[in-house]
């Protein structure tokens, strides 16, 4: 029997943000993009969009894994941007996360770039 002890890991979403050439660059600081944070993440980004941000880059450089609930939050953000003619680029995804996007074919829906530099060139 494997038992995992209750962790003291961060349960709240930690994001760092900076604006570069009118593009809001959001770096997810958590290692785990999962069920415990997906709803909070979606609400935080929705607030940024409502505050006027429509050109977004989201960096996953610190994220080790991402689950279906977080994937759903990303789709909801993309849908929110659609009528506003906004744009979303995802960047710095690790191999496992890239594999998840390929498996779900969401790599055909999202703009995915390997670096922040190439992401900013998409705007």
């Amino acid at each position: 029997m494997i038992a995992v002890s209750s962790s003291s890991k961060e349960k709240t979403m930690k994001l760092s943000k900076q604006t570069i050439n009118d593009v809001l660059v959001i770096v997810i600081e958590n290692k785990e993009a999962n069920l415990s944070k997906s709803e909070q993440f979606k609400e935080l980004i929705f607030q940024d969009i409502e505050d006027g941000a429509q050109q977004l880059v989201i960096s996953f450089q610190h994220v080790e894994y991402l689950d279906s609930s977080f994937l759903g939050a990303l789709v909801a953000i993309l849908k929110k941007l659609l009528p506003l003619k906004g744009k979303l680029v995802l960047t710095q995804l690790n191999k496992d996360i890239l594999n998840l996007f390929a498996l779900t074919r969401l790599d055909k829906i999202f703009n995915i770039e390997s670096t922040l530099e190439t992401s900013l060139q998409k705007f």
Partner: peptide, 22 residues
């Protein structure tokens, strides 16, 4: 092999690692 499921989403990654090691 039977493995009890964790109750905290933040324990899932560690759990999956241990299952795969098993």
């Amino acid at each position: 092999i039977g493995l009890k499921i964790p109750k905290n989403p933040d324990d899932i990654q560690e759990y999956t690692k241990e299952v795969i090691e098993t």
